[in-house]
Write a protein that binds this DNA or RNA. Structure first.
Lengths: 245, 245
DNA sequence: CGAGTGGTTGAAATCCGTCAAGAATAGTGG
DNA sequence: CCACTATTCTTGACGGATTTCAACCACTCG
């Protein structure tokens, strides 16, 4: 878990620095090494095959981490919201690109070399990095199940629930979607039209309501959680009992 | 990259131990802490929600790492072959299960606590662990693109190429598939029947040939690599130019 | 106001999953 | 070594969930 909040002390004085870090987060111990950059909507934060000089953390706004094929097909592999880290890669070049999804997205950029050098001497920092990496593994593997084995409506319903969980600062039942339908589509690996149709379907069934194009109110959370097979379509893709096991 | 090969010396004698580690691999420095276990086909190596006591490495044989939903839908999130590590998780319980896919699969089990304790004092080990984790992130994110955005035939063709790359010890054009059609299906998130049909299709087009049910010869590697859109179906799922970008 | 973009909806096409039945293979025990 | 069986694999027919193609609406912004 992240270390408890602390105010950085510079020059011996008691003034807190701009990287004051309201919510506690990983890598707080090396925040002093990080620089903060601002990005416009759709602006590229790091590009595929670019030298991996930084690790990043979203401070405010959001970003999408994408992998793109030569023919243009794109998959958003991670939706990055405040507090999320990204930029980890095994080689010396990023194998993905990351773009801001909101105007004025602020990103903390940690110089990789220096952080790694620090980690050589600071086991606690090394452990934090490891935890961050392990969490990323869990997330993308969970996403594999979602992308591969859920129906479109299940994907969209689950996405709304996930967003309500991650963005919860208020009643948690009103979700302000941080990305467009196009991005939702590329995140869930379905088409834009299907995203739209699924949302309409959920509204029609009374599980959600719209207070704006990108503002959803979750009305029947329970049914939304039970979407799979129960409330929605009977079909469950590719589950074969395979005899008696 | 993994450290260079070394033969463990026990009791001062010059005899190499069973953990002789022919191909160099990560975590070699702590091989002496690992125990080796043997598993039968389909036998569970670690189960979902079980206490995460070990990290693992496949020595011989193979395994599938799965995430399963309550309703039975399953996704193989990683296909583990000799040299591959697994068992990393952010919490104290595995959020996946792993089962052997071959009779007599041998697994090296590294006690997590002890390895982590060692890593506290050994920055090089910590760096190795980090690299292993980063590679796992890259792999599963790449798999997300495959599962989400490729057609069935592209998936199967790419799978054959990937296997030929990972299993290459011989001519590299004859691939001995390590898993059943069912497992290929759950790995690529398609149905068994579609796996079978795609293989037949590739054979019909002269890109591959069978020397046995689970032995494939790659005949036209180039066409196999160019599958997307070119040699195969014209359709490319969900790529919309989205106006002028 | 018109252009540009995001979002929704409809109709038609299609890929793929399901269901079903065989064929091929592997495993077992006599 | 050969039935005999269980399992894997293949193939066909069919239906359905999604994609594609197309049109339209809403909103923003110059």
């Amino acid at each position: 878990m992240p270390p408890s909040p602390c105010s950085l002390q510079v020059n011996g004085a008691a003034n807190t620095v701009q990287i004051a870090s309201n919510p506690p987060h990983y890598l707080q111990g090396v925040d002093s090494l990080a620089s903060i950059k601002r990005y416009g909507c759709d602006q590229e934060i790091c590009g595929e095959a670019c030298p991996a000089v930084y690790w990043f953390r979203v401070i405010s706004g959001g970003a999408r981490q994408c992998i793109t094929r030569a023919d243009g097909r794109r998959q958003i592999v991670e939706l990055l919201l405040p507090g999320d880290f990204f930029g980890f890669c095994a080689r010396n070049e990023y194998d993905f690109s990351v773009e801001a999804v909101a105007e004025g997205t602020r990103i903390a950029c940690y110089p990789r070399q220096r952080i790694e050098a620090t980690a050589e001497r600071d086991p606690a920092l090394a452990r934090e990095l490891r935890m961050l990496a392990f969490e990323a593994i869990s997330r993308s593997q969970a996403q594999l199940l979602i992308v591969g084995r859920l129906t479109a409506t299940e994907k969209v319903g689950g996405f709304l629930l996930a967003m309500s969980g991650r963005l919860s600062v208020g009643p948690a039942d009103v979700v302000a979607l941080p990305i467009s339908r196009y991005d939702i589509a590329d995140y869930l690996a379905i088409s834009v039209e299907t995203v739209s149709r699924s949302l309409t379907e959920l509204r029609r069934r009374g599980l959600i309501a719209f207070t704006g194009t990108r503002r959803v109110r979750i009305i029947d959370r329970h049914s939304l959680e039970d979407l799979h097979g129960l409330s929605m379509q009977r079909r469950v893709p590719s589950f074969k009992p395979r005899f008696a096991a």
